Simulated assay, not measured.
Amino acid sequence: MVNVSIARRYARAILDVAAEGNRTDAVAEQLNAFAAVVGKSADLSDVLLNPAYSRAQRSSVVEALLQAMPAPAEPALANAVRLLVDRNRLGYLPDIARLYRDMADARAGRVRGQVTSAVPLSADAVAQLQQSLQQLTQRNVVLETKVDPALLGGVAAQVGGTLYDGSLRTQLEQMRRELK
C-alpha cells in the first residue's frame, strides 16, 4: 500500500460521483475489473506506470482499455481513470479499487466475508450459510468461497473482523488441548 490517504480521497470522490447517479455497484464492478486487468498484465502495468512513457501514450492506452470493456464504461469511472493518468496516480489504482469497494459496501450496509471449506460448497449451502451469517451479524453479507483441504471438514467463515470457525481441524485441535 503506497499512500492510503491519496487512494482514499480518490475512492471517496469516485463514490460521491457514482452515488449521485445511483451507479455505485456498477462503478465498483468496473473499477475492480479495470484494476484486475492492469494488475494481471506486466506489459500493461509497465506502460501505465513507467515514467519513460509519455502521458499521451498512457492516455491512449487507457482510452483503448475503456473502449475494450465488455459494457460501456461508467462516466464516473472513465473520468476518474483519465484524471489518474493526468496526475500520474495510476499506481494507486489497486488501493483505490479496494477502498472504493469497502466504502460502497459500508454505504449500502453490506459486509464482505470469506468462507473456507475443505471441499467446494454447493450454491444451496453457500446461500444457507449466507442467510445464517446475515442473522448473526444483522447486516447484508456478501460471501466469497475458498477451498482449503487442510481443514479436513466443516467450514470457517470470516465476516468483517469476526471468525466463525466450525472446521474439523479446529475442533480436533481444541479437543487435543483439552485432553492435555
Rank of each mutant, 00 (worst) to 15 (best):
E63H: 08
E63A: 15
A64P: 03
A64K: 09
A64M: 00
L65M: 15
L65K: 14
L65D: 09
L66Q: 08
L66G: 07
Q67V: 15
Q67S: 15
M69Q: 12
P70C: 11
A71W: 06
P72Y: 02
A73M: 00
E74S: 15
A76S: 07
A76H: 05
L77I: 09
L77F: 09
L77N: 02
L77Y: 05
A78M: 03
A78D: 13
N79A: 12
V81Y: 03
V81I: 13
R82D: 06
R82M: 10
L84H: 06
L84M: 15
D86K: 11
D86C: 03
R87V: 05
R87D: 07
R87Q: 06
N88P: 01
L90F: 12
L90M: 15
G91Q: 05
G91V: 06
G91M: 08
G91Y: 10
Y92D: 06
Y92F: 15
L93Q: 06
P94W: 10
D95K: 03
R98T: 10
R98Q: 14
L99R: 11
Y100Q: 01
Y100A: 02
R101P: 02
M103S: 10
M103W: 09
A104T: 11
A104D: 06
D105Q: 06
D105H: 03
A106N: 14
A106G: 10
A106D: 14
A106F: 04
R107Q: 14
R107D: 13
R107K: 14
R107Y: 00
A108M: 02
A108W: 01
A108P: 02
A108F: 02
R110N: 14
R110Q: 11
R110F: 13
V111I: 13
V111T: 07
R112K: 01
G113M: 10
G113W: 04
G113V: 01
Q114H: 01
V115C: 07
V115T: 06
V115A: 05
T116E: 04
T116C: 08
S117M: 08
S117V: 07
S117C: 09
S117W: 07
A118H: 03
A118Q: 02
A118L: 00
A118E: 04
V119S: 01
P120A: 09
L121I: 08
L121P: 13
S122C: 04
A123Q: 14
A125L: 05
A125G: 08
V126S: 10
A127I: 00
Q128P: 07
L129M: 14
L129V: 08
Q130Y: 00
Q130G: 06
Q131K: 15
Q131S: 15
Q131R: 12
S132V: 10
S132C: 00
L133N: 09
Q134A: 15
